[in-house]
Design a protein around this nucleic acid. Structure first.
Lengths: 187, 187
DNA sequence: TCAGATTCATCAAACATTTGATCATTTGGG
DNA sequence: CCCAAATGATCAAATGTTTGATGAATCTGA
């Protein structure tokens, strides 16, 4: 795997013999600039890099932590939210775990079948659904999160503490700017 | 939507009345620290924030650019790779667009059916598959990418030019560090 | 009060993804 | 030369996602 420095300074005209997941960003940005002079190359590089980095982190976490334990990434997100925020309405769970209500509905079928959480009708509104972790779900999320956080720690070591804070600051600023960008949000 | 500053300074003990996709990061980090004193909170915050930001950007691009045109995010990634790197073996396409060979195989069925690309057996190795854009595929990716890049530009404006460069540098450093972290990669 | 609008959840169909199995082709060692 | 091992692609089954439709419960306003 090339270092990140290499990936930023290459300017090949032809597709490099070995185009990898990492080096493709730099190649793509330069190629796009030539094909479409009007392209916003810096925006393209930012979004492409953001996606590559996240996808590497998620792939690692999912394949080294969650799948081996019979969990999926979305399932983890739901159980994680319930663990930290406590029993709540399904609508809230969907919002904070970043999925549509329909997707959650489908996901709940497997999580409930596996005995990790329970679905109940809310008393104050019989349309609504109240979700809560079962005992088994609570024990499971504890163990899985510990392993998850160990992998997170390994990733975090790539950056200096000050760099981690700066990365978080920039990502938060990016999210905050989404309103100006009139970005589409779920629901 | 709360500003990113707000999200970083709240320290509520109970779940806030309105827990959103954005504010959940801060809430979750503090809660996890109390529940599990051994947690690496900074690593947790970094990975959580990275995922939230990326998921917001992807959701916006997919729902405002790709789905309305009858495309999907993974389909776009494949056509984008073929557009920029030219005809190539399916194995390479899978690598640079970040998916497993099996996932690409399934995806190719719809892309081929929609007349956007063609699958051919490679001459030098009759096991291998050669992929190339059709005329229709070429025209389509041009238009879709233009719209895609316009949305990317809107997102990029949230940051100052220097901040964008720093964000890209930090993400690249994170990816480069994945070898030290012994992260799992595809294939 | 009650009928229409809204909200919540689920379903249906199409699509994409994962892991593991299978089949065809190619490679490499004896 | 030939057979075992490796490689490339696809398939199968399970899971999760999207949009749009449907049904049930609640709210709103005349």
């Amino acid at each position: 795997m090339p270092s990140y420095r290499l990936a930023v300074v290459t300017h090949n005209a032809a597709p490099p013999d070995e185009l990898t997941f990492w080096s493709f960003v730099d190649y793509a940005v330069h190629k796009a600039e030539r094909e479409l002079p009007s392209v916003n190359a810096e925006a393209m590089r930012m979004v492409l890099t953001l996606n590559r980095a996240t996808s590497m982190v998620v792939y690692d976490l999912e394949s080294s932590v969650h799948r081996p334990r019979g969990w999926t990434w979305p399932g983890f997100r739901v159980l994680f939210a319930l663990w930290l925020a406590g029993p709540m309405e399904a609508k809230t769970t969907a919002q904070i775990s970043g999925m549509s209500r329909a997707a959650l509905s489908a996901l709940l079928n497997t999580l409930e079948r596996d005995g990790l959480l329970s679905r109940e009708r809310a008393t104050h509104d019989r349309r609504a659904l109240q979700l809560s972790l079962t005992e088994a779900g609570y024990g499971a999320i504890l163990g899985v999160f510990r392993a998850h956080n160990r992998r997170e720690s390994a990733w975090a070591e790539a950056l200096e503490p000050e760099e981690r804070r700066e990365l978080v600051r920039l990502l938060n600023k990016l999210m905050a700017g989404s309103t100006d960008a009139q970005a589409k949000f779920r629901n």
